[in-house]
């Protein structure tokens, strides 16, 4: 699945395939969205320990800005903008979680949640962030792997 775009010029070329919609952007790993919506195939292999760190890191996922994650009691401040993430690992499939992180606007166009692996359709991105996604493909998979470990019932 590590197919890199050979169409360097245009960003966000979506190809309709029988199995779903392929999304391909210059420099990004190609992925396929199937009905539901979901991205069932992983971009690369994830590591939950690195994922946990990316979720906390303010320069990376900073998921704690908006979500409370009871499995991370050592972090003092958890946000309240999105739902508590306690049992997503038992409620959502890897594909659904991946879709949520890569481009949640496919699920809910009005959402406040950023698209962590998307370049196109953005307005006035600061110069130093242009051409960059918030998370790399590796980091997306790390976070997905971590989310899958969240199965509820935390003592803290």
């Amino acid at each position: 699945m590590k197919v890199r775009s050979i169409f360097g010029a245009a960003l966000g070329i979506a190809l309709m395939a029988a199995a779903g919609t392929q999304v391909q952007a210059a420099g990004l790993v190609k992925y396929t969205v199937v009905e539901h919506p979901s991205i069932p195939e992983s971009l690369t292999k994830g590591d939950p320990v690195r994922g946990r760190a990316a979720v906390i890191n303010r320069q990376k996922g900073n998921c704690l800005a908006c979500h409370s994650i009871p499995e991370i009691p050592e972090e003092q401040f958890h946000g309240e903008v999105g739902p508590v993430l306690d049992d997503v690992g038992s409620r959502m499939s890897a594909g659904e979680i991946r879709m949520r992180i890569v481009d949640p606007k496919v699920i809910n166009p009005e959402t406040a949640m950023p698209s962590f692996y998307k370049l196109e359709g953005l307005h006035r991105v600061a110069k130093k962030w242009q051409g960059k996604t918030i998370l790399s493909a590796q980091e997306v998979e790390d976070v997905v792997a971590y989310m899958l470990t969240l199965k509820g019932s935390y003592s803290n």
């Binding site: 303010r58 900073n62 704690l64 800005a65 908006c66 401040f77 958890h78 946000g79 309240e80 903008v81 606007k105 406040a112 950023p114 698209s115 953005l122 307005h123 006035r124 991105v125 600061a126 962030w129 960059k132 918030i134």
Partner: peptide, 22 residues
Amino acid sequence: RRGLLDLSCAHCHEQNPGNLIR
């Protein structure tokens, strides 16, 4: 909506006043 985080003023200040952001 603007920026890499793709948020409008409204996402925070109209939809979420009173809520913690970290």
